[in-house]
Design a protein around this nucleic acid. Structure first.
Lengths: 205, 205
DNA sequence: CAAAAACAGTGACAGATGTCATAGGTAAAA
DNA sequence: TTTTACCTATGACATCTGTCACTGTTTTTG
């Protein structure tokens, strides 16, 4: 039997999933936590073969738990992220922090059980969406803005005019115009509005 | 026994919740659907006392189901929305489309069962978050854009210049300028970039 | 019907925006 | 040390943007 700690803030989802997994004869959910803090408390008391970890949680989120686990010198449990997709960057971070893989909540029950077994056996589980995303990230020529440009871009994203930005950053308006011009060129857009849209959708701000 | 159709796209959540509800001796989930289209198919074949409806789904979402149900002249089932919060506006729309209430997925199981019974009995279930939001909305002077203005605003949100918009909507550039000017006045902002930011954050586009 | 909105258009204007060439100072990397 | 990149700045320029006043037409509404 694989012992499993389930960390998920939505009560219905947590109870339901625990029930489902317990119905199988290979996995037993013998620990539950509503959020990161509770999860760490449980992990202090006893060990689990695997931790099923939600990302979005109150108090302490998935990344927080992973960070805390990484600091533990003793044997760390395998962590399988269970997420609703959405935020690829967070998943990348999670993998970097030692997660053994992730599955979407849209996964079928059997696949989930297989994934858990795979992770416990020392494997990694990555669904296609993330690998695609990583590839795309690598292919897309990384936009490198200087510190100042990023500062100006943030101002743009607040809807500030060149004059306001100049005043806020203690520069001449002409300087700001130059920065804006460079930003537009780097982002390959034609005006500040497009720059803001691109910045938002790419998480640059 | 209250018969219940559960509409939820995430398999794990759906199966788990169905299991939980079936453990109670008052509610039986005797219909499941992965998305709106499946839900409507099920509803054609037979009746349920209540429909537990997720909002975000592929194919046909919660609002789509409600819209379709509203067109049915015969007796419509009570609908209880189950959501992850987030989008208040959608909830408002859902209520306007005849939903009997909504609960967050973070609800406790007992509360959910109570809510279902309440809805079946003809009541309405509204959690505090939404009522607060509605109040706030009413306090904030409602921005009323005309159809044309909304069309122009959408173009603005795509980063289009006046000339492009004029071409796209088959108007003179001057006309578009006037529309933009009116939009800025109504949104109480100073330029198109701020308008786009406000539009995005308020879900106007 | 009559009043009120919404829609389309023009022309003129001030100011904002973005580009370009040019150039000095500074700090980090080769 | 030399080079490179970054930050700063200016002036000139073309273009874009937003405002205003005024004129119509069409559609909605009381």
């Amino acid at each position: 039997m694989i012992s499993c700690l389930l960390v998920e803030d939505q009560t219905l989802v947590r109870l339901g999933l625990a029930n489902l997994l317990n119905l199988s004869d290979e996995i037993v959910v013998d620990g539950q936590a509503q959020h990161g803090v509770e999860a760490l408390q449980q992990l202090e008391h006893r060990d689990f073969d695997v931790v099923l970890l939600d990302m979005r949680m109150p108090e302490l989120d998935g990344l927080g738990v992973l960070t805390a686990l990484q600091k533990r010198t003793c044997l760390a449990p395998k962590v399988l992220i269970i997420t609703t997709f959405e935020d690829c960057d967070v998943l990348v971070e999670a993998m970097a922090l030692g997660a053994k893989g992730y599955v979407l909540k849209s996964i079928e029950l059997e696949e989930l059980i297989d994934a858990i077994k795979l992770v416990v056996a020392g494997g990694k589980v990555l669904q296609p969406a993330l690998t695609d995303y990583l590839l795309q990230k690598q292919i897309a020529p990384q936009v490198i803005l200087t510190a100042k440009e990023l500062q100006v871009l943030k101002c743009l994203s607040l809807g500030m005019a060149n004059k306001s930005i100049a005043h806020a950053l203690s520069n001449s308006e002409g300087t700001i115009r130059n920065h804006v011009s460079n930003i537009l060129a780097k982002l390959e857009v034609k005006d500040r509005t497009q720059a803001v849209l691109k910045a938002i959708s790419n998480g640059l701000v």
